[in-house]
Amino acid sequence: MHNFQFVKPTTVADAVAALEHDGAQALSGGQTLIPTMKQRLAAPEVLVSLTGIDAMKGVCKGDGGLHIGAATPHAVVAREAAAYYPALAHLAGHIGDPAVRSRGTIGGSLANNDPSACYPSAVLASDAVVVTNKRQIAADDYFQGLFSTALQLGEIITEIRFPIPERAAYVKFDQPASRFALVGVFVAKFAGGVRVAVTGAGEEGVFRWKEAEAALSAGFHMAAIEDLAPPKQRMIGDLHGTPEYRAQMVKVMTKRAVGAA
């Protein structure tokens, strides 16, 4: 990979300042960025590690629900969110593999917004708030398509605030090689209704399956899905599954998530 200057600030302010350099790029756990840099598909001149900022780490119960520091590794979320939000902890505990979960962070995953990543589905289904150094962004506004988010240049995610649903579950159907989600569905039932977010399948990244939300809000049981047509979103077609297959799997996984919730 190309060489770069490595900096590791300990405060958000210092990180923001460091990111003002031309060619600066934030590094969180690096589990996607570093392989990309090895392929020379990314070549930052300054790499700003966020893993030294203690204020961006940790899981705690707050008034907005569960607050998770953006630089908290998946393994920590899996362990520490379990008592408050088991479905989210389960999701975190099945991202990648144990070594990836030691390094990879929730903020890094959301900033990258890989169409097959797990976390975006939890954030969207939970109607979570993405907190940055500048503002608070509602989940519905945050995800803007493939690898695309509402984040502006130099903006850093500092925290994610998850409202805790009455019932929820995430069911992931693995892509057999990478173990990313071929289709992943997060179902969250709140007093005010049900949200269903789908990752892995859509050509534009994570999306809400609104027909399923309506059906499940009317009656939260597996049978509610049975007669629905698969979602209308354009689906990914690749070596591992056709768009038709993915569309069908969205239905199957949604049903299973409802069963598991």
Binding site: H240, G241, T242
Partner: peptide, 11 residues
């Protein structure tokens, strides 16, 4: 015999 291939054979 990936899931997608088996599913396609069945559907």
């Amino acid at each position: 015999l990936t899931p997608a291939r088996v599913w396609s054979a069945l559907n």
